[in-house]
Amino acid sequence: MATTAPPRIFSRDRRIAGLRRARIRQAHSDAARYILDDMVEDVLDRLEFIRLTPRRVLVIGDWTGTLALSLRGAGAQVEEHDAASLDEESPIDGAPYDLVVSLASLDRVNDLPGALLHMRNALAEEGLMIASIVGAGSLPQLRKAILAAEPDRPAARMHPLVDNQAASALLQRALFKRQVVDSHTLTVSFGSLARLVSDLRDQGLGSVLASAAPPLGKAALERAEMAFMKSANDKGRVLESFEILTLTGWKD
């Protein structure tokens, strides 16, 4: 029976290039890294709550190295990968793992059901998968600004994102047991649209759409900045939201 290939929404080459640029930008003392810091802290809290002490762990996407360092300190053998060294849409070598963690990565693959299935297959019996992504409730102020920049014929510039309901269905489709999807909101204040864009680039979270839109012109950028700053508070700061969606599933 013939299978249909998933649509090519994201470019893996652009993902890798963005991550490489983010690592260079992290050399600056004021570089942002709060998304991964939040995700790492959340994963460690979850492992402590369920009292899981895995022996073999695969960590995908944590370019800070913090999660691996903490797990190794607890005696785990940890392998670390990112989009450059591991293709999540292909079978994962080195299995079985007691724990597979993916951070800010799965929302940028074209075949998300397949990637989740590969992660499940990489688990040992009763192994645990935790995947944290930037969810559908994220960046409402940026989305308004982008729409205002090109009111007549807007180009595709922002990623389609996964919501709670879709994530639950994906875990079921990948045959995880005892699956749970939950979310929390991380709120960050910005003094300008440019600072928000810079923070996203610092963290490798810029656009990696396969069909890259042309750069915004000067007038469009001015419209975007004006729309963004319309929601500023009395201190001249715009509160932007990141919904951190966490998918958790056990194998058998």
Rank of each mutant, 00 (worst) to 15 (best):
G217H: 10
R108I: 07
A227Y: 07
T246H: 01
G204R: 01
P91M: 03
Q141Y: 06
V43N: 11
P113M: 00
G73M: 15
P96K: 03
R237A: 11
V109I: 09
P91L: 01
S70F: 15
A232F: 08
A32R: 03
R153L: 13
A212D: 08
L86K: 04
M129N: 07
L239I: 12
G135Q: 01
R143W: 07
P54I: 10
I35K: 08
L69G: 15
L216W: 09
M158I: 15
Q26M: 04
D42P: 04
H184I: 03
L147H: 13
V59P: 02
I146K: 06
A220R: 09
S132I: 00
F190P: 10
I130Q: 05
P215A: 10
L196N: 08
L116I: 02
R237G: 02
E48L: 12
R55N: 11
I60N: 06
L86E: 03
R223C: 08
R195E: 12
V59E: 15
D45Q: 13
Q77K: 10
I50A: 07
R33E: 08
A166C: 01
A122E: 00
H81A: 13
A27P: 01
E48C: 11
H159N: 04
P54C: 06
L209Y: 05
E126C: 12
L58R: 02
L175N: 14
E88M: 15
L193E: 11
G73H: 12
A220Y: 08
L19S: 05
G61D: 02
I9W: 10
M1Y: 12
A122Q: 00
D111I: 09
L247E: 01
L147C: 12
R14E: 13
A212Q: 14
D152C: 09
D107V: 04
D199T: 03
A174T: 01
M119F: 02
D111N: 13
V238R: 07
V134L: 03
A194L: 15
A224K: 14
A232T: 07
G206R: 02
V197L: 15
E126L: 09
D163P: 00
K177A: 15
L99V: 04
L245D: 00
A17F: 08
G73I: 13
W63Q: 14
S183F: 04
P151E: 07
P6C: 14
T248F: 06
R21H: 06
S189A: 12
A145Q: 12
R173H: 02
K251N: 04
S198V: 06
V59A: 11
Q141T: 12
A5S: 14
D202M: 01
K144F: 10
L44F: 14
N110Q: 10
E88V: 10
R46Q: 10
E80F: 04
S192W: 08
D202K: 00
R21C: 05
L128P: 08
Q179Y: 11
D38K: 05
A31T: 01
R14I: 04
A76G: 05
V181G: 00
R55V: 08
I50T: 11
S198H: 13
A104T: 02
F176E: 02
S11M: 10
S85T: 14
I244W: 00
S192D: 11
L239A: 12
